[in-house]
Nucleic acid binder design. Structure first.
Lengths: 186, 186, 186, 186
DNA sequence: ACTTAAGCGAGACGGTACGTCTCGTCTTAAC
DNA sequence: GTTAAGACGAGACGTACCGTCTCGCTTAAGT
């Protein structure tokens, strides 16, 4: 027999969905710089106040709207550690190739300059899970490197893939995985 | 006996200097997002029209103002190729550690999403010279790898250093060079 | 049981009043040429957008702000038609002597060169009512002149009073009415 | 072997003419509000500084450029004083009908609000000569009215013609003269 | 059924910055 | 010394978004 946990009109799921859809459409159509609150409100048929009631900044909005697209998948632990590392690299490349990824990841990194909190949240929510499981795979594949060495290899992988796919927009990702594997494991 | 090469009042070197100084001060004080044309004009004691007369966008302004800070130095070719590669990595780390570098490089990358031309100019002017000479050093140090392999190694170096120093803001850069050297040459 | 007749936040009467007051103060202090949107906004403690939301041009703003000062009063129809014509002339002289009248009437006439619509609105709203009732008074006082003759006499009255009080800024208006009465009625 | 009476390059008559022509063209094409110094300079193929060297304001410029069009002709003194008054009214109507007159006279009056000096110069140079000779004609035609009465009649004439032709833009000026004559001389 | 309280749309509000325009002044080299 | 060219500081233009606010109206749960 619980108390009314929240009196009043409940949050409109319809508005929430319309807003997040509008954010995705706007990001794809106009990029992060075109993601204005007014544009989102207008496209979603929603009042600006409703957006601000639930998301403090457009960064938070973009992050939540694109969440499903930018979360890097975790790496399973099979009994073939090399295959697991391969799989970690695949996850990374695949995520970075998604339509919204480039837009939102750039924004997250660039906004990080002004707003470290958002950058931290981005990493914690969307990168960290992959990082932990990928680290485990590398540790096993390399036969027990110390943590610093593993973290370094993760940075090599992330940095290189980021550079190739997002900064240089190199479309050919086929040999990227093999080159990285060869580099790391002799 | 040449004709007047440029009629009219010549460009004021004083205004130019004041503007570029104001840009640097503003970038350091308020970041790229605080770099408004009005702020620069006001700090430089200059009219907005004068800024727009010479720079079309704040991106161009930031690039020119920070130019000296973000140009990665080229790599000399000595008869110790390994030392040359070390030197290339040093140049990169040292450039990325300069006060303005983080701000402007993030901006260049983020703006690149909207304005590929600026990203291209950034690379051509400030990165490419280093890249060419660093590639040559790697080629010699590795005993004549093919170009694709060399480019890949450059991306590994740039990506890793970018990731470590700018994205993760890892202050400890001491072992970064040695880890990269060890990774590449065995 | 009516529906919400106007959705959204209602117009701020405070802002409206502050703007119109600021317009009047600015007109008196700096004339029509000093009536900039920025000056009004600043003096009224209001954003420029709020002004533009409700008035399309500074002309419309001046007209509305000064409306009460430049509307020429209508002429009552008593059973002494000569007294009514006198009263019509008095109204005119009195209106033209008000503090804002000179500034705004000049502006309305001068702007009329570029923007006939504003001149038309000025006449329709602030002059026409007087003109109709004054015409009726003249008609009765002259014993039924045809309309063209009456309109001509109105132009004589308006033109002469305008010339004397506003163009020549002749302060002595005492004999103006009597001279006009004498001219028109022998 | 005379001394150089004025050292240096003499004033370019060509530039002067080009400027005044450009002023007239601009006034006709864009009205007084379109008469910007930049527009005149550009149309005349002349530098702005050259304009400012010789005319202090655009008002002075307009007045000089349009001078020939807005000077009201003087009234001859024949032995038919009534005909002379008629002639005075004709001069007025004819002047007010010239292409540039409306534009410049409005400007002179409107600018008069800010800059009384210009209004005074306008009257002294372009209206006063007519006014003196017209006053003389009226004095003779009315058999020696006192000066105040004559000045009043002049204001009636000027005011009425201004009102009809310039403010109301009434194109039919045929009966205007006769109505004024009838009003003044019974 | 009635009350209460939050959610919602619409849209006005004070601000800030935008990029453009014209002003009147200035600085140069050519004439 | 005057000219054309054109850069300059100043400051208003009208527009776009910002984040906040004030309305009247839903929409449900608790009475």
């Amino acid at each position: 027999m619980q108390k009314n946990p929240q009196p009043g009109r409940p949050r409109s799921e319809k508005a929430r969905t319309a807003i997040l859809d509008a954010v995705r459409e706007t990001l794809l159509a106009s990029g992060y710089s075109g993601l204005t609150m007014e544009a989102v409100a207008s496209r979603a048929g929603v009042s600006k106040a409703t957006i601000y009631r639930w998301w403090p900044t457009r960064g938070a909005l973009a992050l939540e709207a694109a969440g499903g697209q930018i979360a890097i998948g975790t790496v399973p632990a099979t009994d073939d550690p090399l295959a697991d590392v391969e799989s970690a690299i695949d996850q990374l490349i695949e995520t970075f190739s998604r339509p919204l990824a480039s837009v939102v990841i750039f924004a997250a990194i660039a906004t990080g300059a002004d707003d470290p909190e958002m950058a931290a949240r981005f990493r914690a929510e969307y990168v960290y899970p992959w990082r932990v499981t990928a680290a485990e795979a590398i540790r096993r594949a390399t036969g027990g490197e110390d943590d610093e060495a593993v973290q370094f290899l993760l940075d090599v992988i992330v940095g290189t893939v980021f550079q190739r796919t997002l900064v240089l927009k190199e479309p050919n990702t086929a040999d990227l995985k093999w080159r990285l594997m060869a580099l790391i494991f002799r």
